[in-house]
Design a protein around this nucleic acid. Sequence first.
RNA 1: CGGGAUGUGGCUCAGUCUGGUAGAGCACAGCGUUCGGGACGCUGGGGUCGGAGGUUCGAAUCCUCUCAUCCCGACCA
Length: 502
Amino acid sequence: MGNKVKTAISPTREEDYPMWYQEVVKASEMAEKSSVRGCMVIRPWGYTLWENMVAILDAEFKETGVKNAYFPLFIPLSYLEKEAEHVEGFAKECAVVTHHKLEQGPNGGLVPAGELAEPLIVRPTSETIIGESMSRWVSSYRDLPVLINQWANVVRWEMRTRIFLRTSEFLWQEGHTAHATEEEARQRTSMMLDVYTKFVEECLAMPVVKGRKSESERFPGAVDTTCIEAMMQDKKALQAGTSHFLGQNFAKGSDIRFQDADGKDQFAWTTSWGVSTRMIGGMIMTHGDDDGVIMPPRVAPAHVVLLPIFRNDEEKKDVMEYVNSLAGELRQILYHDRKIVVEIDERDTGGARGWEWIKKGIPVRAEIGPKDVEKNAVFAARRDRTPKEKSSIARSDFINGMVEMLDEIQATLFKRAKDFKDSNTHQIDDKNKFYDFYKSKEGIHGGFVMAHWCESLDCEAKIKEDLSVTIRCIPFDSPEESGKCIYCGGKSQKRVLFAKAY
RNA sequence: CGGGAUGUGGCUCAGUCUGGUAGAGCACAGCGUUCGGGACGCUGGGGUCGGAGGUUCGAAUCCUCUCAUCCCGACCA
């Protein structure tokens, strides 16, 4: 070992980032690969996190007038064909249902039978089937806007999968709205991106860059795709949420028409927006360290774990009494509209017990033994500090300071991530420097580069081919300034965000 | 779909070349000693070696077929 600190996760981020990620997910017991190819099992520690995310987002959506609904998992093939670019975008990764029953096969096994007249696809996204409903719901401008969201699973048959980041089946939320005017639809698009930004920054403690996708990265069928991009600790970009302005493309495909106030027939303007379980992967890669996950308190499955320490039944009795009453008091406290969640882990598994909670990323750990009972104190540690940093805190201070401590942890995580992102974001104006910056193919390197771009698809494609670096977005806050395209030297008015991406 | 590789207890893997009915570490269970701490000792449970067929007195080991998975490429973000 020497002076090297022993870490709970091996390899470390430095040694092998992708492997580190896999190990963290496994060690935290958040999820695991299932025996079904490309699909994951989300375990309680991961699913509770998701439920917390859902609860917050759901309330925010409703705040803006959106209502939840549910649409079929199966989409008739013909629906998908309604929007040309859309089909092209998704056709390659669709699961297709062709039969409706099983029969005994010649070798004893079951074989599909009863071929369907029209194949059904398992939804990769629901624009077309929700559009079909909307077309029937909307006939007058008085019926607009329609503001719908659904929480659902979707399937995209991915070739290479990574748990949470890209799985064949994943959980998400997809909002779909229809409006009478372009302006209103555009406003909705940006309003929902703002909802995502606020959630991701405040609750997941992940700083993001807000912007618009270049044409090549746009959602199939969209007029405009806006997004939030976050930086992972390997300095790659991860799209954490998207909001699309679909223009009238899908309204035309699905025939969503209405009569306006002047009695004229018009196509509606639609939007769609979504975030998925992918955010969980992003959160892990933003905050996790070589000891495992670090849960931001706002969404943590649990806030505090109490670890009773005792040697015999007598000590156990005293300690447990103290622990239970402490837990009871903590559970009364509200932390951002949610009661503090306290775990009590009285397993007698020695030191391994504490490390399990570190790996799970619980924000606060407190060891409580006879000495603490005697002193009316707790021996507490925070997940945003090193494992060895523990200190004795008076019981009342621990309780009264809990909300503040959690907020501090939340703030620390955000600041740490923001500093990391900022210090790894550079402005580069020279093509050679740009290439040198991204040249290395292995390990943790690179970062975000703000550089000029002439808006040519060709320049973008060449850079992608040479460096696997793409335009993540054209940031909204990128100021107007004259410059030269980083690839061809052509005229440019704005810097765009380049990075390697997940 | 093209190239490469692997399938042995829950996990990681040895054994396969030189056939003789299975091993290690970790994990798990019990007991004990420890312990403000990812500990130690002893004991124990658990696999028939991806599947099918073949060669052989005898196959995890050889042959054939098959299934699955992983990596690279392609494809996708």
